[in-house]
């Protein structure tokens, strides 16, 4: 039984079909990436799974059909999306952002210890606990968004372009953190422009083309595939 199983997913913006008949799976403890050109439907796919966009097809998470459940109900199941552009709350402090991550949880003691863990994983956040998140750099905001996602104790973490707009050093840092999150046993569905990094981090990858899966292979095979290398890894 796969943790996440998406079949024949279709999403349209008005008359424009952004995703047409897409299938993908993520297993328990697996790290999977979606790569593809701009407009291939990567972000749309994640948003549809998270319940932010109306869609057709079937989505099962942990054996349960997500149907047309609202986004807040899906979030409660442990399926957590860190949206493109990070989506931190700029006028809230770091601490409040992290508390929002644990919004649905009622196990106060565990939330407290998770908060300590997040601060241990991301010491930069601990130093700036009371500062407004809107004042942070892009990389710090991405760290905060990751920390906030961890506060929900996700079973499947969906990350949309975590490297976007970050300085190269910061990209390394952020991917280091994502690697640590995977090592904790969190399953990952990663959308990433930087296919090179994504394929190095994940076990499997899907290449999206025009709203459908073009290729689905283990990450090392995709990284070795001449067509993928030419199109997405910047090699002639």
């Amino acid at each position: 039984m796969k943790l996440l199983s998406v079949e024949r997913l279709q999403v349209a913006y008005g008359r424009i079909q952004a995703v047409r008949a897409l299938d993908l799976q993520v297993g328990e403890g697996e790290a999977v990436c979606l790569i593809g050109a701009n407009g291939a439907g990567k972000t749309t796919t994640l948003k549809a799974i998270a319940g932010l966009l109306p869609c057709r097809g079937s989505i099962h998470f942990d054996g349960r059909s997500l149907g047309q459940q609202p986004a807040h109900a899906i979030a409660r199941l442990g399926l957590t999306l860190v949206p493109e552009g990070r989506g931190i709350f700029p006028r809230m402090s770091v601490l409040e952002n992290l508390q929002m991550g644990a919004y649905v949880r009622r196990d106060r003691q565990a939330v407290k210890s998770d908060l300590e863990e997040v601060f241990a994983l991301l010491p930069r956040l601990a130093e700036r606990k009371t500062q407004k998140a809107g004042l942070f750099s892009g990389g710090e905001q991405q760290m905060l968004a990751l920390g906030r996602a961890l506060m929900s104790r996700p079973r499947l973490l969906m990350l949309d372009e975590p490297s976007m707009g970050l300085a190269p050093v910061m990209v390394q840092t952020v991917f280091g953190i994502i690697r640590q999150i995977i090592q904790r046993g969190v399953s990952l569905l990663l959308v990433e422009q930087n296919a090179h990094l994504a394929l190095k981090l994940c076990q499997r990858g899907y290449v999206l083309e025009n709203g459908a899966v073009g290729l689905a292979d283990p990450a090392d095979e995709l990284a070795a595939n001449p067509a993928v290398r030419a199109a997405y890894l910047g090699e002639a």
Binding site: A71, H72, G87, F89, M100
Partner: peptide, 17 residues
Amino acid sequence: RAMRAIAQSQPVAQLMG
């Protein structure tokens, strides 16, 4: 906090549950 979160971004607030 939820009220303020919605005021800042409704979709992200939904993603928080």
